[in-house]
């Protein structure tokens, strides 16, 4: 369980990234955060694994306030929280397998990781996870030989190899075309169901949010302006969240193009 208590974050330049957030996210939920760019979605997500540090309030993960974490504690926290990025963040020159096994770094001693001495189980785990996102045949390809959608699947495999309790995804489909976007979201949803991993995704596409989310949290100017089940959301709700009427660019579309 993740709990935000009166959480605020002010950046050194004075901008308020988060304003007094109070949210509870339960184990196994698939939460989509929506909002315009600059609304604080990214700050919200990055607070959970402390890539940014909130300046006031409390943030509990599995019952512990993580804001005081440093060094080893912080790495232990991050080990159990996987993260997927908009730009995939793979090391281009390294092979797919090496990128995926990087998910085990938190479990592996520095010396072992530098000499690539991973336990056999870890390597098998990495391979299994590549299979789950159907990209096991690219095992030894260099990451930059892959298409955007394939790279994002590799980054999902990397996160799975971490064996996380929580997956955070920061605009995972913003750089992809509509059919590939749906493919990636389908994988995320499937993993969420099968492994009961709490999944928190930032999106700005309304149609995708409604389709994949269990619960939608709307943000504007660093504040939570909506929080409710996806089933109760309609276009009017989004107009309230965005503070303007819905435009074409807020929709991803392309669902009918994707098979399976």
């Amino acid at each position: 369980m993740i709990e935000f208590k009166n959480l605020s974050l002010t950046y050194p330049n004075g901008t308020q990234g988060l304003k007094n957030i109070n949210i509870k996210i339960n184990k196994g939920e698939f939460v989509v955060i929506v909002g315009l760019s600059g609304a604080g979605k990214s700050t919200f997500i990055r607070s959970i694994n402390r890539l940014v540090t909130p300046t006031a309030g409390e943030l509990h993960v599995e019952g512990e306030d993580i804001l005081q974490y440093k060094g080893r504690d912080l790495r232990e926290l991050r080990k159990k929280i996987g993260m997927i990025f908009q730009s995939y963040n793979l090391v281009h020159r390294s092979t797919v397998l090496k990128n995926v096994i990087a998910g085990r770094l938190g479990y592996t001693s520095t010396l072992r990781s530098i000499f690539n001495m991973y336990p056999t189980e870890d390597i098998e785990l990495a391979y299994e996870n590549l299979k789950r996102v159907n990209i096991e045949n690219k095992l030894y390809s260099r990451a930059d030989e892959l298409s955007g959608g394939q790279q994002q699947r590799v980054s999902i495999a990397r996160v799975l190899t971490q064996q996380p309790n929580v997956i955070l995804a920061d605009e995972p489909v913003a750089s992809l075309d509509p059919p590939t976007s749906h493919q990636v979201m389908t994988y995320l949803k499937q993993i969420n169901r099968e492994d009961n991993i709490t999944t928190i995704v930032n999106l700005h596409f309304i149609d995708m949010a409604m389709e994949y989310a269990d619960r939608i949290i709307g943000m504007r100017d660093g504040e939570v302006v909506y929080d409710g089940p996806a089933s109760k959301v309609n276009e009017g709700t989004f107009e309230e969240i965005y503070g303007r009427s819905i435009r074409e660019e807020d929709m991803r579309g392309g669902k009918e193009d994707v098979e399976s």
Partner: peptide, 8 residues
């Protein structure tokens, strides 16, 4: 022990 994955 060799990992049970396709060889390079």
């Amino acid at each position: 022990m060799k990992a049970n994955i396709p060889a390079k």
